[in-house]
């Protein structure tokens, strides 16, 4: 009996270990398949037309610049909304709100994170964009700005939860030290707590931006889907098209193995690399902050 027990133990341990390692396998597999289907682009479309500002696949114009600028404009707008609102809410929850308020706010913000993006896109079409069209006197309400507003909302929960964690992990002694020196709570927040949580707050912003770049359904539904090169701030109020929306909108209609198909995978590869870079940097910031905290506390 003991023998069979040790065999069972051995097999279970191996299975658990394999599951742990599977995360690495999946990232590798995703990257491999993006490369496999995306890299042929480089031999089928030459670099100069790829970096062109005309995206019109039916006539074999595969310039991805308008898609990249489209993503940038929408994401930038989203960040301008998500950063102040996200950090402000995090400061409110962690430093100002009474306990009962915190218990209500945290699940509510989590709830926003759980709202399907397609529902937000749906309301964007029916409610937000008609309102903006009238309110801002635009020819159409389906603009980059509409996308930014909704994407900002989608990024807020990420920013709030990471920033709130960072503020929460600032040792209480820091605050008490500042109060003992006669600083008000407000001065303490600005001059002690926020600076001490700087790296965590920065991580929050990065992860929020990462979330915004990758968002698909909402932007596809509300940004008007016009692959026009964004050149100025004015583009914020005209229709654009992002990288994610392009993949989502066109992949269904292309023939497998065609150039168009390869280019869409190529765009996916670019998105993958962007999120890889954002997350590696964000996590290294977290690691460094953690190490410093350990050094201070020990």
């Amino acid at each position: 009996m003991e023998k069979s027990l040790s065999w069972r133990e051995f097999i279970i341990t191996r299975l658990i270990q394999a599951s742990g390692y599977s995360a690495i396998l999946f990232v590798a597999l995703i990257f491999f398949f993006l490369l496999r289907e995306g890299l042929p682009t480089l031999s089928e479309v030459d670099a100069s037309s790829l970096l062109n500002f005309r995206w019109y696949p039916i006539e074999s114009y595969f310039g991805i610049l308008p898609l990249i600028t489209g993503s940038l404009v929408v994401t930038l707008g989203a960040a301008l909304i998500a950063v102040p609102f996200g950090i402000g809410t995090a400061v409110y929850i962690s430093e100002i709100a009474p306990r009962w308020m915190r218990e209500i706010l945290k699940p509510l913000v989590e709830l926003l994170g759980g709202l399907p993006s397609v529902v937000l896109g749906f309301l964007g079409i029916l409610v937000l964009s008609p309102f903006l069209r009238v309110f801002l006197d635009l020819p159409t309400g389906l603009t980059a700005f509409t996308g930014s507003l909704l994407l900002g909302g989608i990024a807020v929960p990420t920013v709030v939860s990471v920033a709130e964690d960072a503020l929460d992990s600032v040792p209480r002694a820091y605050r008490e030290g500042a109060w003992a020196l006669g600083a008000t709570k407000w001065q303490t927040i600005w001059r002690v707590t926020l600076p001490a949580a700087k790296s965590g707050v920065l991580t929050a912003v990065m992860l929020g931006v990462g979330r915004a770049i990758g968002e698909t359904m909402t932007v596809m539904m509300v940004t008007g889907n016009a692959p026009v090169l964004a050149t100025s701030l004015g583009s914020l109020f005209s229709p654009v098209r992002t990288m994610t929306a392009t993949i989502a909108a066109e992949m269904g209609e292309v023939a497998n193995g065609s150039t168009h198909y390869h280019v869409l995978f190529f765009i996916g590869m670019v998105l993958f690399i962007i999120s890889l870079v954002v997350n590696v940097i964000a996590s290294s910031v977290v690691f460094r902050a953690k190490k410093r905290a350990e050094r201070i506390l020990s």
Partner: peptide
Amino acid sequence: LIRLAIINLAGIPSVVYGLFGLGLFVLF
């Protein structure tokens, strides 16, 4: 490395998962 991989999986855009699923599960 495993932790880094998990963080990255969490950050990959959902539409890229769609591409991956198409490449691996649907076609391959």
